[in-house]
Design a protein around this nucleic acid. Structure first.
Lengths: 275, 275
DNA sequence: TGGCAAAATAAACCTAGGTTATAGCGCTAT
DNA sequence: ATAGCGCTATAACCTAGGTTTATTTTGCCA
């Protein structure tokens, strides 16, 4: 490795060429017995702990969450299958949030100490991790803009669009339909609104024939209109990919790596977390 | 370099030892003629441009800002002397925000292409940049929590505390007094509230004897109370430092590097930006 | 010294969304 | 069955903060 690694981090376009192989290697570098099952509600780490490992989410949903002293909480990031969690604590070395499974799922834990070996194996991986961190930061910035300047209705619409787009990329949504394993309270905590208002807003969107939600199954009935309302510009989700974004959702094929059903021990269909 | 560099990134505590020297080297690696004067209102980069360099802010204030189609805008980050701007676009390669000088100031531009040489010179610099990115992310996350869960009054109080703490670290505040070169409209755009309400809230804080603002000079009269209101926990600002945060503000000595007055070409006292 | 433009105040009014309360619905466990 | 719990829905009410419109203050410049 050596110079090659840093070059590949700082000459950004290098990483557009082989992200997939590298993510794959990230998964495959560790033997299957490192794969761990988690139940909905399980805690991956807690605020204040030392951070000495990364997690790769192979199936299921997770989130990072901040609990306030007054009892309320805030969901900061939503993690989907294929996501790497804990990257932003590599430097600081301690957790500033909690990470919780939203559904059952399988995770793979990588101690920081194992990273150098991983980089030896596939030099571009470091660049990839760096790119992922940057992408996450882009998502945070985007979310901040949206939270501060848009109505509750728009925020909810945007959240749905974002989930849908991300799920399409990993092949977990068919047509406009997908499983959104969050309670209205979860959504409220993620979007900075009250659960009551989430309910109201959902009813409203449903009444307009835009979406439909039953149990935790969500169906987007009018994607175009929904994206209009949300003013959804998916480019911020695309910085990891070679393309320029803005292509219509329908043409997309999964690019980012998600674990295929076959290489996972049974149950990857998350059951919903109980509060 | 080589292995050493990555080790130093991923063995986090290495960087608690020598951050100062490295930031210094960041500054000194480039000859003085690279130092450029900027006027308040100058644009360092614009949304959509290609990102091929970093900026080090040596004096003055700057911010990253997002303009909305409807004409409103959002200040995303505030940069103070000593800050490095543009880090989070290294991987993605294009700007997703605008960067604007809030006051007159001096900046130093580092093309991405010059980074490898810089890393050769002082291997820890890479780790430092990495750490700074993480720190920025922590600030973003913190801001998100605050923007979503706190009242306008608390947000304003928090913003004041944050600026004060950051300015203390670089030696640009004496006692509770410092220059805050933002108009109420700027503050409104940074805090997601209306300019009118910023004014109202400022008046209220002043009436309670907490702060005092004249022109762009701000005086904190009752720091303790202000921090209570803001529920200000400065730890998120401290991840670059070896200490554990939480020490009282009064005991702090400047640690992060700020350019000393002497090594700057005259006028570093920013004049306020005209809108 | 006077005039101008940008900021800051102030008052009146209005609405998005929070809060509280109640009720229905679909589980699981006795 | 039925009791109990978690999630959702709907309605009534209330408040923080937005918007609009003046009025005042301030600094800048000729």
């Amino acid at each position: 490795m050596n110079r090659v690694v840093f070059d590949s981090i700082f000459k950004r376009f290098d990483l557009h060429r082989t992200p997939e192989q590298d993510v794959t290697s990230l998964f495959e570098h560790f033997p299957e017995d490192q794969l761990r099952h988690q139940n909905a509600g399980d805690c991956l780490w807690q605020e204040g702990e030392n951070a000495d490992s990364l997690f790769v989410l192979r199936s299921g949903w997770a989130c990072s969450v901040h609990y306030h002293k007054e009892g309320s909480r805030q969901l900061l990031e939503i993690y989907l299958p294929g996501d790497v969690l804990g990257l932003c604590q590599i430097a600081s070395g301690n957790r500033r949030t909690n990470a919780v499974m939203l559904t059952d799922g399988w995770i793979c834990e990588l101690p920081h100490s194992s990273l150098p070996a991983l980089f030896d194996d596939s030099p571009n991986t470091a660049a990839l991790l760096f790119a992922i961190i940057n992408q996450r930061q882009a998502m945070l910035a985007e979310r901040q803009v949206i939270m501060m300047h848009r109505s509750a209705r728009q925020r909810l619409a945007h959240f749905i669009c974002e989930c849908h787009t991300r799920l399409l990329e990993i092949g977990e949504s068919y047509q406009g339909e997908f499983l959104l394993p969050l309670t209205q309270q979860d959504l409220a905590d993620a979007l900075g609104m009250s659960a009551v208002h989430v309910s109201r807003t959902f009813s409203q969107l449903a009444a307009e024939g835009l979406v439909q939600r039953h149990l935790f199954q969500l169906i987007i009935l009018d994607a175009t209109r929904l994206r209009e309302i949300a003013a959804f510009d998916e480019r911020y989700l695309k910085s990891l990919r070679g393309d320029e974004g803005l292509s219509s959702i329908e043409q997309q094929t999964p690019v980012f790596i998600s674990p295929t059903a076959s290489d996972l021990p049974e149950d990857q269909d998350g059951k919903v977390a109980e509060k």
